[in-house]
């Protein structure tokens, strides 16, 4: 988490500096920014899935019928990445 925050502060300062020196072009090209957005979203989704996945495996170990429900709940944070993917096409 902390690394991600540091990364964003670095990026923000980079952007600000970029804004001062070169007025027209952004500091990171749009393509790279979109890639970054998707990457960060995937990181967040992965972190969320870690806990849910552990709980789901626990539930399945106790009761096989939980497999379907556990699977659905585990991949639910994946929607974050799909939404972030929208950024690439805008």
């Amino acid at each position: 988490m902390i690394e991600a925050l540091e990364l964003t502060t670095v990026l923000v300062t980079l952007l600000q500096q970029g804004g001062q020196t070169v007025e027209a072009a952004p500091a990171i090209p749009t393509g790279a920014a979109a890639a970054l957005a998707v990457g960060l979203a995937a990181l967040g989704a992965g972190y969320a899935e870690r806990g849910i996945g552990a709980a789901a495996v626990g539930a399945i170990a106790e009761n096989d019928e939980m497999f379907g429900r556990g699977l659905i709940l585990t991949v639910l944070p994946e929607t974050l990445v799909i939404l972030a993917l929208v950024v690439v096409f805008v």
Binding site: G51, I52, A54, A55, A56, V57, G58, A59, A61, E62, N63
Partner: peptide
């Protein structure tokens, strides 16, 4: 510790 896993199992047993 792995709270998520243990608690999912404990709840089921409970």
């Amino acid at each position: 510790g792995n709270y998520e896993y243990v608690i999912a199992r404990v709840r089921s047993r409970r």
